[in-house]
């Protein structure tokens, strides 16, 4: 009963934000929405299938570099083409990488994804001619709905058309993911997370379903990566670095992986918390480390778990 009310209020706030809030805060919403798309996918793997990837920045990197290569080298400027291309590129890489990784679980899966992420990071860094090395590449302002929006300054473009475009992508990605987790496929993923051996005896092909989940999460990360590149205007190898993978796992934990909207809340909290802490205290990672420790020990359900407390207990595995 409460959820539709909260969602409509959030929706109205999002629509009105560019008009009401200072431009600075509106620009902070852009990475939030890009990460939102990434995290919806990551949580299909993490929260729903029970696999923690420490290399998912690999796919953010692929999506972002796809956008940069398309806009600067190939003259493709339409965001409506860039997003599917980024998603496709991520899927092409995720197919073999995922097929290898899903044969392992727990720490082995995490380490293997980390290794693949670092391989790609090194590739970006060392193949200077192709990728621009540590300087990266420019991501030119993409066309939205077929228009370059010529009358808009960079900021006006970002907090106007690009904001609403990102919002539309996030909403579509959310609706699609909602359908996925509620489908028989999504429920089979939960059975794999809860008890893979038992799921198999009911006819669930565990490695295949894990692979599907991996592919879907990579596609989401690719699209999110392309979305993330525009506000920065530049892509560089740190997008694929392992600390970036760590950050998105942190966002999921912060928001709460056992809830559908938890990761979105986590992305939001992470970005605004980072902005606030960085402005008053240079050692923001120190604060974030403490926050992470606090969450794992006292609020394993994340922020969403705190809000939902009393409604549904969050079950924590210490195993």
């Amino acid at each position: 009963m409460r959820t539709p009310v909260v969602l409509s209020l959030v929706g109205i706030a999002f629509l009105g934000l560019p008009v009401l809030a200072p431009a600075y805060y509106v620009t902070l919403m852009l990475p939030f929405m890009a990460y939102g798309v990434v995290l919806l996918g990551l949580n299909l793997l993490f929260g729903y299938t029970g696999l923690v990837s420490f290399g998912h920045a690999l796919f953010i990197g692929i999506g972002a570099y796809t956008g940069a290569v398309l806009t600067t080298h190939l003259g493709v400027r339409h965001m409506e083409l860039i997003l599917p291309a980024a998603a496709l590129a991520a899927a092409v890489v995720a197919a073999p990488v995922g097929a290898l990784c899903v044969r392992y679980v727990k720490i082995y899966f995490g380490m293997l994804t980390l290794a693949f992420g670092m391989v790609f990071y090194t590739f970006l860094l060392k193949f200077y001619k192709l990728t621009g090395g540590d300087e990266g590449m420019r991501m030119l302002r993409p066309y939205l709905l077929g228009s370059e929006w010529p009358g808009f300054s960079k900021t006006a473009y970002l907090i106007g058309p690009y904001y609403y475009f990102s919002l539309a992508v996030l909403v579509l990605a959310t609706l699609l993911m909602w359908r996925i987790v509620r489908s028989p496929f999504g429920l089979c993923l939960k059975t794999i997370r809860d008890n893979p051996l038992k799921a198999e005896s009911l006819g669930v092909s565990v490695p295949r379903y894990r692979w599907y989940a991996f592919m879907i999460s990579a596609v989401y990360a690719g699209a999110g990566g392309a979305l993330l590149a525009t506000p920065t205007g530049n892509v560089d190898p740190t997008l694929a670095y392992w600390t970036h993978s760590g950050n998105i796992v942190f966002m999921v934990l912060l928001g709460g992986f056992s809830s559908f909207f938890g990761p979105l809340l986590g992305a939001f909290a992470f970005i605004f918390l980072q902005d606030t802490v960085m402005s008053v205290f240079p050692y923001w990672r120190l604060i974030f480390g403490a926050v992470l420790a606090f969450i794992v020990i006292f609020a394993p359900g994340g922020l969403m778990g705190l809000f939902a407390r009393g409604r549904r207990p969050v079950e924590v595995s210490r195993a």
Partner: peptide, 26 residues
């Protein structure tokens, strides 16, 4: 059709969903 000793009920799924799984997988 295998029903193991410890039942193996999936805690996150409803009773109806627990039974429906088999109709999707086969």
């Amino acid at each position: 059709g295998f029903a193991p000793e410890e039942s193996g009920i999936f805690p996150d799924l409803t009773v109806a969903e627990n039974i429906e799984i088999s109709t999707w997988t086969r």
